[in-house]
Amino acid sequence: MKTFYLMLLVLILMLMQSIAADRISFGEIAPDFLLLVVLFYSLHRGAVKGAFFGFILGLAQDLGNPTFLGLNALLKSITGYLMGRAGQKMFPENVILLFALIASFVFGHDIVYLIFFKWPDLGSAFVVVFGVALPSAAYTGVVGVAANQIIRLLGARVVRSRGKEGQ
């Protein structure tokens, strides 16, 4: 059931990235569904699998923009690893904790990404970090918590209905 739940979540978030990300954005502030996928995957599967998954997904993302080939792979594999480690220590059942965890990882990811991306013009990177990356991280955290709750509710309903069938 856990695998089913995870795969469903991953699938929905990837679909959301391609279908809904632009539509629910506020200017430049938009949720990063792909990073959410990596974070949830790592949270449930651990650091090593999370790092691998992050690397693969990041590399796939880099292929679309090969100017910084390897950057997304690097950042997402590290993010996946760290989220996996965090999940091993304490699984965030609490909604606020989950939000904080997602938002902070997204924010950290974006900061490093912007440093690479804007180097050596770090002044403009600073503006973007607080003008775009921070609200985007918060937005992603909200979306992540919402997605997690929806999927858990659906999963619980499936479990209940199967349980009744079993009786």
């Binding site: 650091a47 090593v48 790092a51 100017t67 950057l71 690097l74 690893y81």
Partner: peptide, 28 residues
């Protein structure tokens, strides 16, 4: 084990990052 795998992935990513631009485009 965890750190070794992460290190390998980081090295692979950095190797891709430091590739010359034409090589990056070709790989992609």
């Amino acid at each position: 084990r965890d750190k070794t795998i992460l290190g390998a992935l980081v090295i692979a990513s950095l190797a891709l990052l430091i590739l010359p631009q034409p090589a990056k485009l070709d790989v992609a």
